[in-house]
Design a protein around this nucleic acid. Sequence first.
DNA 1: ACGAGACGGAACGGTACCGTCTCGCCACCT
DNA 2: AGGTGGCGAGACGGTACCGTTCCGTCTCGT
Lengths: 203, 203
Amino acid sequence: MIAAMDRSTDPGPPRGGPVLQDSVTAAITSAFFEELAAVGYGRLSMEAVARRAGSGKAALYRRWPSKEAMTVDLVVQVSVRAADTPDTGTLRGDVLAFLTATDQALRHPLVSRILPDLLASAAYHPAIAAALGEEIGTARRRKVGAILRRAVERGELPEDADVDLGLDFMAGPLYWRTAIRRAPAGPDRIERLTDMIIAALGA
Amino acid sequence: MIAAMDRSTDPGPPRGGPVLQDSVTAAITSAFFEELAAVGYGRLSMEAVARRAGSGKAALYRRWPSKEAMTVDLVVQVSVRAADTPDTGTLRGDVLAFLTATDQALRHPLVSRILPDLLASAAYHPAIAAALGEEIGTARRRKVGAILRRAVERGELPEDADVDLGLDFMAGPLYWRTAIRRAPAGPDRIERLTDMIIAALGA
DNA sequence: ACGAGACGGAACGGTACCGTCTCGCCACCT
DNA sequence: AGGTGGCGAGACGGTACCGTTCCGTCTCGT
């Protein structure tokens, strides 16, 4: 999810191979996310993306019919890479791993600028809301749901643990802290956050 | 905080009094928040605000030098009204009151559209970040800090309760649920949320 | 009665994007 | 070798805002 946003990690095609189409698409993709981080979705212009990508506008319109379609396509494409967190054997291990991975993603400078903007833009653009809900929301719910279910099976959580609110605890505090308050959480904060979330889940 | 955003609750000046300046300002204020909810800060134009307010653009520029200044001024002005939550005598009562008030604010259709957008815009506009941090962030931290401090004094929370992370728990889950997931929380959910937050605070 | 000043409205020149289209160029595939 | 097609560049007409300036009107305070 991160690498695709990072132009410096995009070495282009290995060598002399089938270059053209792919390198242009990669340049446009990088430019899109950089521009998104620079001005936000509302002020994102196709012209600026093309300019930043060093391409013509036609190269964009040849691939996507509109800014919204481009956004949905690229965001979905980049979100797919989010891997499942493994079963560590304990609830605390699972939660800690999930939070650490989430924190790492939220710390990425492009992500931390882009994600709140896209989440807010979702209120104005149903297509974006659908894409985010589908690709990010559903995936996250599935992961967290699996973690909580395993914990119930192990007897670490009561049978009637509130999974619905548990989802909000697994995402809310860390997102609020990192993306909204912009107060980065060190490893010790993540540990403590883990303990507090587990206490909340057991209530 | 809410009433000022609601055009229908603005009856204008009582009668024949000193009308001009104030009623125009009120119309502009309403139009600003409506427009903000309609298109977001990034695409908000002074021209559209004036159009919606039924005024000339000069009326806006006579009051504020720029869109950013107008936004900061109006947002601050509207945020001031947020009242302190009273001391209910118990931690649970205080938390429940705070969450209920927060939930009520977040349920307001204009607030739920505007707030995420402004919080995201803060990443691009330092002046907005400063205004939100000062008027909303500081006020919220003061309130929650007082609640937690009282609880420690009562012996309801351990002396070493983590106030810093506690702030994130008091805001994060509810904000995530209501403003991001857009899954409204009924009174029973707020009750349960309260219990879970208290468990987290005690960890 | 009168001047001051805010009002809605409209126009100004300038800038930015839109989405389309046309160039000439160059790399690919027969 | 020649044709196909994506490429960067950028012109095109059209729309939207910018911030300013000018109208003529209306309501104040004096």
